[in-house]
Design a protein around this nucleic acid. Structure first.
Length: 711
RNA sequence: GGGCGAUUAGCUCAGUUGGUAGAGCAGCGCAUUUACACUGCGAAGGUCGGGGGUUCAAAUCCCUCAUCGCCCACCA
């Protein structure tokens, strides 16, 4: 027995060495693979946000994608796994702002360029740190093709898509109601807001002859339209457009009656006043009837001059009670209903209420894009694992809204457009040559906004493969599998399908495999404050990467959240050790064999006669089928069960008597080498390490050995 | 208000096309210095949330109820 087969197995010493061995071999790059690897198999890695270190969710996607890539590589595919890093616009800016806050600084007091450069440095530092972590988890991705979302070539692709959307009439700049976060000082897409059930007071005020209900008295200053349903009998004496003089917060005003079917007659009194600038429903009503609208609250959540000298400049949360008090004193407060439950939109990052604001932004008309994507899915060009997610995807796509892609943050890809000072027109300008407004001839200035980061991520598959000009695109697009978390099915997957088809005419990937969230051993969300975070790097140092990967794979059904406990990881560390000891036994007892020729007639005839080998063949073909059908949670369990409870517990025990015979030795050796091959995509380090010690003729790296598929 | 998922051993979860249930951990008895104590052997433990239906046969398909969870939605 060689010296290195001391017990027990020590992953720390092995893993770094093995990874270098792989990297130096060049086989992560499909162009360097041997002749037999002809047909491409491609996965584009979901680029991790370069704003922190890897968490348990990252280790899951690495385990899954590396599993698929290694399996396909062994099967003889020209396997390409493209790594990358995401600048992660808003996400990273939020992380960096927290850092600034801790240091007593603020982004609003910084020169934009200085801020940008600082975040860039922060991102690049995190990026290289993360690359090391991805390596330590054993990812067999092609580092020579690594991409970053802010590199010039990617930006060029993204800009070109923007231009094309514009010339195809799918892009428009419009004054729309946007989701404004007063803390982060940017607009957000629908997906970037959460809905929270809140209990508030519901006020009823006397508004001329009407009683109107509201939860937001602080928005009522500018309200001069009172709306009711056209069929409401209670108000039939009032005509649409009729003017009424009445007493309001700051004195007498003239209100106008509007009849609109959006009003629910059952709710409250069936009459309400509208604040189009700060409410989506109201905005729709105002647009339908061509009504005036003006802002009441500024971008910082403070009341504007329209509120009158008494209230101007006051924070809305403070002003609310004061306004109610004033209305009460004027005898206009009818009643206050406590504990009124309603849903409030909040910023998904800071949970502060979203203040809708009317703002000029770039919007994409999504319906035509969604239509084509739906058709492609309908035709089966993209398949979802699981089917349930396909339904979820379709439902969202069928009800898609226009997408605001403008963000008022510095950290992102600049929007290549000019905005007219005079008329507000937006003009797409990739080459920075436009100086006059094409509509009114007025002066223009550069749009200072950046793209929603998902606008660029949505183009990732074809952008990373250098669409349209280079050979990678020709060879590897459409890619085979997109593996990512089910939580970003709308944010990312849906947009990739739409943009992929839009730009290239082809779907970006054939299969979408969605994994669930990784929770702690008790099913709780991991969070620093709960102290239940499993750091993959610490874990892999402690138990070995192979153990961590197995713990993430076994029994983890696609699309379902999984619980990861240290106990489970520990169990697979034991398994690694078991495998180690199986090898010790086999090598110790097969010294007669010298260099084994795995293609010899002797072995072939054993494979046709020994029940143990026939049985193994059957199990391998089951596992292969599971692998082909994305049932990794079953495949991993089967090979685990085989190695421990069949090979170790039964076969080895039963041959101890006959181990002197060459035939038995050959058989057990063959079982071991096949088991290692099947285990390799799951537990790459230990299997490669053991493989390096096996006496086999014309041995290659296990990384590129043939998958022992029967048939 | 719509849609979806879950409910299986003490705990956390698997169970591919229906053929009378599995893993990890915990726990019980025994064994053993063994390739492996990061061990082996054995036993125990579940009327697969309740009820109804289809079937020769249901954890698996259908209906219904209950509890929990998630997503989507402009009701002031």
């Amino acid at each position: 027995m060689t010296e290195k087969f001391e017990k027990p197995y020590n992953p720390q010493e092995t893993e770094k060495k093995i990874y270098s061995l792989w990297e130096e071999s060049g086989f992560f790059n499909p162009d360097n693979l041997p002749e037999r690897h002809k047909n491409p198999f491609t996965i584009i890695m979901p680029p991790p946000n370069a704003n922190g270190s890897l968490h348990a969710g990252h280790s899951l996607f690495i385990a899954l994608e590396d599993l698929m890539i290694r399996f396909k590589r062994m099967q003889g595919f020209k396997a390409l796994w493209v790594p990358g890093a995401d600048h992660a616009g808003f996400e990273t800016q939020v992380v960096y702002e927290k850092k600034l806050e801790k240091e007593g600084r603020s982004r609003f007091k910084m020169d934009p360029k200085e801020l940008y450069d600082e975040i860039m440095q922060f991102t690049l530092d995190n990026k290289s740190f993360m690359e090391g972590q991805i390596r330590s988890l054993g990812a067999s991705c092609d580092w020579s093709r690594e991409r970053f979302t802010l590199e010039p070539k990617i930006i060029k692709t993204v800009h070109e898509t923007f231009r094309q959307l514009s010339s195809d009439g799918l892009l428009y700049r419009g004054e729309r109601l946007v989701n404004w976060c007063s803390k982060h000082q940017t607009s957000l897409s629908e997906l970037e807001t959460d809905s929270e059930e809140k209990e508030d007071k519901f006020y009823t005020f006397q508004y001329g002859p009407f009683q109107i209900g509201t939860t937001r008295p602080e928005t009522k200053f500018g309200d001069k339209y009172v709306v009711m349903h056209p069929n409401d009998e209670r108000y039939k004496e009032y005509k649409h457009g009729q003017k009424i003089d009445l007493e309001w917060i700051n004195g007498p005003i003239t209100a106008i009656i509007i009849k609109d079917e959006a009003i629910d007659m059952e709710f409250g009194t069936g009459a309400m006043t509208i604040t189009p600038w700060h409410d989506a429903t109201d905005f729709e009503i105002a647009k339908r009837h061509n009504l005036d609208y003006e802002p009441v609250i500024d971008f910082y959540g403070k009341l504007l001059p329209i509120a009158g000298p008494e209230f101007e400049g006051k924070n809305i949360t403070v002003a609310r009670e004061e306004i109610v008090k004033k209305l009460d004193e004027k005898g206009l407060l009818i009643k206050v209903e406590e504990n009124f439950k309603h849903n409030v939109k909040v910023c998904y990052k800071c949970n502060r209420p979203i203040e809708p604001q009317v703002k000029s932004q770039w919007f994409i008309n999504m319906k035509p894009l969604a239509q084509k994507a739906l058709e492609a899915v309908e035709r089966g060009e993209v398949k979802f694992v699981t089917e349930r997610h396909e339904r979820i995807f379709k439902h969202w796509m069928e009800n898609i809204h226009d997408w605001n892609i403008s963000r008022q943050i510095i950290w992102g890809i600049p929007i290549p457009a000019k905005i007219c000072d005079e008329c507000g027109e937006g003009i797409v300008d990739l080459d920075d040559t436009i100086t006059k407004c094409s509509k009114c001839g007025g002066k223009v200035k550069q749009d200072t906004d950046t793209f929603d980061t998902w606008f660029s991520s949505g183009q990732w598959p074809f952008a990373t493969l250098n669409f349209p000009e280079e050979k990678d695109f020709q060879e590897f697009y459409p890619t085979d599998v997109m593996e990512t978390g089910h939580d970003i099915i709308f944010f990312w997957v849906a947009r990739m399908i739409m943009f992929g088809i839009y730009r290239t005419g082809k779907v970006p990937f054939k299969t979408v495999y969605l994994h669930g969230m990784v929770r702690d051993g008790r099913g709780k969300k991991m969070s620093k404050s709960k102290g239940n975070v499993i750091n993959p790097i610490t874990i892999s140092d402690q138990y070995g990467t192979d153990a961590l990967r197995m713990a993430l794979l076994v029994g983890n059904a696609p699309g379902t959240d999984m619980n990861l406990s240290e106990d489970k990881i520990r169990a697979y560390k034991k398994f690694a050790n078991k495998l180690w000891n199986i090898t010790r036994f086999v090598l110790d007892n097969t010294k007669d064999l010298e260099e084994v020729d795995l293609d010899s007639e002797k072995i072939k005839s054993l494979r046709n006669s020994k029940p143990e080998l026939l049985n193994l063949e059957k199990i391998i073909s089951e596992i292969t089928e599971d692998m082909e059908n994305h049932r990794f949670h079953l495949a991993s369990e089967k090979i685990y069960h085989y190695a421990w409870h069949e090979l170790a517990d039964k076969i080895i025990e039963s041959i101890k008597e006959t181990i002197e015979s060459t035939e038995t030795q050959l058989m057990i050796f063959d079982i071991l080498q096949k088991t290692l091959k099947v285990l390799h995509p799951f537990m790459p380090f230990i299997t490669e390490e053991i493989w390096s010690s096996l006496p086999i003729q014309n041995k290659k790296l296990l990384l590129i050995e043939r998958w022992p598929q029967s048939l």
